[in-house]
Design a protein around this nucleic acid. Sequence first.
DNA 1: ATAAATAAGATTTTTTTTATCCTATATTGG
DNA 2: CCAATATAGGATAAAAAAAATCTTATTTAT
Lengths: 148, 148
Amino acid sequence: MRITRATEYAVRCILFLAVNGKGEVVGRKEIAKYMEIPGQFLGKIAQQLAKAGLIEIVQGAKGGYRLLVSPEKISLLNAVEAISGEIFLNDCIMRPASCRRSATCSVHCLWERARTQLRNTLGEVNFAKLMEGESCFGPLEGSSRQGR
Amino acid sequence: MRITRATEYAVRCILFLAVNGKGEVVGRKEIAKYMEIPGQFLGKIAQQLAKAGLIEIVQGAKGGYRLLVSPEKISLLNAVEAISGEIFLNDCIMRPASCRRSATCSVHCLWERARTQLRNTLGEVNFAKLMEGESCFGPLEGSSRQGR
DNA sequence: ATAAATAAGATTTTTTTTATCCTATATTGG
DNA sequence: CCAATATAGGATAAAAAAAATCTTATTTAT
């Protein structure tokens, strides 16, 4: 029930690239150093981000990574799911066939509901906002208020 | 980013106890059989549920588990957190000291926001509702709010 | 060509999760 | 009281997932 470190690293990486400007190539080592990400591990993560179309990997000397998509068009959800795959809170939702209960069991509807909500929340915030540090100030609407 | 099997088992266990009536003692093996939970593993899970005050463990012949709290007073969140501890989506929220960024980093505000929302969602549904199978019918309003 | 980078596959290490084994203890019924 | 039935609880094992690293290959700037 936790966001993996790989995902956290991916978010940091995108954020760093965003801060450095969309088209700019930034070296892997530089990103790793400033964002405190194990260098080789970042390499693996970058591969996934590239596969998802979020960044481009530039090889060779002076190589590195380049953000392909504007920060405002990348949601936190995009980043998370680029690394961990689509969010599912439990197995039964993903593989209904593997659980005889799913058709009748109301619990699974709940998991699914929670899942949808979580994905919506993460989908609402983009990296432009994150860069501005404004993410904390928006109201959290809905019945079970907890503002902030 | 997934609900563990232990948590799923705990939910099934509570649900089974709830269906059998609040005060009733139900044998561990019976629960395990009907809810398809490895018997010994259920024993471990029951210990945690007992520690959380949700059930009572009855030893000896004719022993088993007894629901101590009315189904309508047990939320899904109670069940989840009885097993996995309080939900945190990432480490930095839980141990801010371990992450130098947390004070300034807007990303963490987002994780926290998502976390609060998830906890609210799970907190809004109790086992009485789950028993009735009504959980699927509540509207999930708008993309950002989700009242109810 | 050489140096500087990253790629990509394989592998290792660590952590978490899941499950089981074994001995102890409690309870029921005869 | 005794035997049978159940769960408790600590220890341990097995499996899976996550995190990290090693190695060799490839690409690019100068």
